[in-house]
């Protein structure tokens, strides 16, 4: 029997401003399956619903209808607290604007997801955070504040942070969106490396066709519907 997919969406719909005159359906029935360890790009024009879909998969908002299974778990059965725990343990996030906490050092930022999960600092989480920062090439910058780092370095910290809990799935919304093409390549390579070495599945929203073609699979969204799926 095949391993259960890390993500499975069935007829997911999302409407905003439900029951008001400006009601609008943004996602019109999305079916999507992501296998464990898959490295996929989510592409599509601006306003097609990529971020919305990513937020719904990220359990940051609920769909209007449809089924979502993450790591085999049906999320409509979960309450707010259950979703919070599932999100913390199963999902990592990387956003276009890094969203690091400026009050904390690079190391502390990387430890944050584990601190939230365990509730207090432990030696183990410190060691893993150091190791992750070493992996992203920031072994010398562990005690630096985000403001003392370049945009590319900040995004590396964000990637290390997304992997702190060793989640099976990382969601990235235009992670290279405001980086120059050389730095973007490096960040992309880094995610690819974690995907290969740790078996972490990635779903990456990108506008950059050069990067999209280097993914295992491309899912193209158009007007809230999946238009094309291409595997490499």
């Amino acid at each position: 029997m095949a391993e259960s997919p890390i993500l499975r969406l069935e007829d997911v719909r999302k409407s905003y401003n439900l029951g008001t005159p400006i009601q609008a359906e943004v996602l019109h029935g999305i079916d999507l399956t992501l296998a464990t360890g898959e490295f996929a790009a989510l592409i599509g024009p601006s306003g097609s619903g990529k971020s919305t879909l990513l937020h719904i998969i990220g359990l940051l908002e609920r769909p209007t209808s449809g089924r979502i299974l993450i790591a085999g778990e049906e999320i409509s059965a979960l309450d707010e607290a259950g979703m919070t725990v599932l999100r913390g343990r199963t999902l990592g996030f990387v956003f276009q604007f890094h969203h690091l906490l400026p009050e904390f050092t690079a190391l502390e930022n990387v430890m944050m997801p584990t601190l939230i999960d365990i509730g207090r600092y432990t030696r183990g989480m410190r060691e893993r955070a150091r190791w992750l920062l070493g992996k992203v090439g920031l072994g010398d910058a562990v005690d630096k504040r985000p403001t003392a780092l370049s945009g590319g370095m900040q995004q590396r910290v964000a990637i290390a942070r997304a992997l702190a809990m060793n989640p099976p799935l990382v969601l990235a919304d235009e992670p290279t969106g405001n980086l120059d093409s050389h730095t973007a390549d490096e960040i992309f390579a880094l995610m690819r490396e974690f995907n290969r070495e740790e078996g972490t599945a990635f779903l990456i929203v990108t506008h950059d066709p050069r990067l999209a073609v280097r993914c295992d699979r491309r899912v193209e969204l158009m007007d809230g519907q999946i238009r094309l799926e291409r595997s490499a």
């Binding site: 990220g58 999100r87 969203h99 939230i116 999960d117």
Partner: peptide, 16 residues
Amino acid sequence: QREIGILRAMGASPRR
């Protein structure tokens, strides 16, 4: 605001 949002995304509950 942004930091609170990202903390929520990382699994911090509203209560915390």
